[in-house]
Structure formats: structure tokens, C-alpha cells
């Protein structure tokens, strides 16, 4: 074999070495939290505080609750799930993929109808959706995103579901739904209140918080996952999440708390 042929192989094995090394490092000691998109913003602030007080490294993986559930079912290496509903955490607990007895509600979500387009002023009702002058209404995919499901319930309850069918655009998760509205691509959209940020910094245009009784409660539950059964920092984090100070912080993003 010539020198030229040998070289790529040597480079290949060096790269492979780095790759394997990297895997073992990555698995060593970082806390991986799978989080429903609506809670990503508050969680970022929260984990900063957690890191400051404990020195633990936290990695966040966000997506729709349904997608995260599917990933966990297929062995995704996550330690904690912060879902946007109680359905999937319950299922995971039942299926043995979550640790029984660790499930609790960390926030109650609120659904908001939002528009940045001044052409669609709306007050405390959904009348604007019965009109024909808007083009697109964005919701999160009801099949995977609990906020999308809540939006569907609201529209059905008010007899608007059929009417808006050909105007619906579905975001893959609530973050994408927010993008659709923020960029003006969708005239209006159902988003999570928390996406306006702490103390509603991003709140522009028109918005209206949907009455809670118009949809099933968006009971957002946390669950410790199987692989983190004995992971101390994961347990610490779940305790941290239930502390008074952190609960206050969660509230400042517009969530309600369970009594």
C-alpha cells in the first residue's frame, strides 16, 4: 500500500477517536431536559439560576410535547421531561419510561389569540375569526402540541372550527406558530402566553387571553425519566422547580399555578 493510500485511513481513525471521546464526555455529567417549546424561554432563565447555585451543566432540548414523547419512547437520552400536558407524562409513567411518583404539575398554561397586524383589532371575543377578511390563522399542530389541541377545542366550542379550516396553518410546535404570527406571515394565531416573555416584553399588536374554561386545562407536567433514576442533579432540579422563588418566576411568565 502506498503512503497516499494510508493517510486517509489514519485521519479516519483519529477522527473516530475524537468522536468516541466526545460521546463519552457528553454522557458524563450534563443534565438533559426535554422541554415543550412554550416553556423554553422561562426554562432558560431558570436553568441559569440553577447553574449559578449548583454549578450543574444543563442542556435543553425543545420541541412539541408529542415529538419529545415519541423520542423518549425510542430511547432518547433525556433525564427530565417538562411537557405541555399531563397526557404524555402519564403515559410514560405507565409505560415504565418515567419514574413512578415523580410526576407533578409545574405550570398551568394560558392560550392567547395574537395578531401583529393592525388590520385585525379584536377585543374580548373571537368575532374576528368569523369574518372573512383575514387570510391565515396559525395554530400549533393539535396532534403533537397541547396548545394546538387547546386551540382546536376553543374553535370547536365556538363553532368556528369548520369555518376556519381553509385558513389554518399549522406550526410544528408552538414556537413555529409564534414565528408565523410575529413575521406577519399569519394574520393571527393561538400562542402560549409565556411566549411574550417575562413581564410580557414581546407583547405587541393585539392579544387576548382565552378564558380558561373554553378548553381543557393545559396542565403542564414534569416527569423524571428512567435513565435519571439515581441522578442527583436531576432530582435537585425537580425540587428546585417546586421552590417558592422559582414558582414566582414561572408566574411572571403568565402561567397560573396549581393550588
Amino acid at each position: 500500500m502506498t503512503e497516499i493510500e494510508k493517510k486517509p485511513r489514519r485521519i479516519g481513525s483519529i477522527l473516530l477517536g475524537f468522536f468516541l471521546l466526545n460521546i463519552s464526555f457528553a454522557q458524563a455529567d450534563e443534565l438533559r431536559i426535554a422541554v415543550a417549546s412554550n416553556f423554553l424561554l422561562p426554562l432558560k432563565e431558570l436553568t441559569r439560576e440553577f447553574r449559578n447555585s449548583t454549578g450543574e451543566k444543563v442542556v435543553l432540548i425543545s420541541g412539541s410535547t408529542g415529538k419529545l414523547y415519541a423520542q423518549i419512547k425510542h430511547g432518547a437520552p433525556f433525564d427530565i421531561l417538562l411537557a405541555a400536558d399531563s397526557v404524555r407524562p402519564k403515559l410514560l409513567e405507565k409505560e415504565g419510561l418515567g419514574i413512578a411518583g415523580t410526576r407533578f404539575t409545574y405550570a398551568l398554561g394560558r392560550l392567547v389569540l395574537w395578531s401583529v397586524n393592525s388590520k385585525f383589532p379584536f377585543r374580548n371575543d373571537l368575532q374576528v375569526l368569523g369574518q372573512k377578511n383575514f387570510r391565515y390563522l396559525a395554530i400549533a399542530n393539535p396532534k403533537t402540541a397541547p396548545y394546538g389541541k387547546a386551540a382546536e377545542q376553543v374553535l370547536r366550542k365556538k363553532g368556528l372550527w369548520k369555518k376556519v379550516q381553509n385558513r389554518l396553518v399549522r406550526g410544528e410546535n408552538i414556537s413555529q406558530t409564534f414565528q408565523f404570527v410575529m413575521t406577519g406571515n399569519a394574520d393571527m394565531g393561538f400562542i402560549a402566553f409565556s411566549q411574550f416573555g417575562r413581564d410580557q416584553k414581546q407583547r405587541t399588536g393585539y392579544s387576548w387571553t382565552i378564558p380558561e374554561e373554553w378548553h381543557d386545562p393545559i396542565r403542564q407536567q414534569a416527569l423524571l425519566l428512567k435513565r435519571a433514576k439515581t441522578n442527583k442533579s436531576a432530582l435537585d432540579f425537580l425540587n428546585f422547580l417546586q421552590s417558592k422563588r422559582i414558582k414566582k418566576l414561572i408566574e411572571s411568565y403568565g402561567y397560573s399555578l396549581e393550588n
Binding site: 396559525a138 396532534k143 389554518l168
Partner: peptide
């Protein structure tokens, strides 16, 4: 695309959707 059936929901998106909900 916005995942609209009949307008922007192409095969690849449909497959992704189906896989997501298992």
C-alpha cells in the same frame, strides 16, 4: 409551508407528521 393539506403538505411533511405521532 404551514402544513396545509392540499396546498403545502407534501409527502416528506406527511411522513414527518406520521412519524411524530407514531
Amino acid at each position: 409551508g404551514g402544513n396545509i393539506p392540499g396546498k403545502t403538505k407534501v409527502i416528506s411533511i406527511e411522513i414527518y407528521d406520521r412519524v411524530e405521532v407514531m
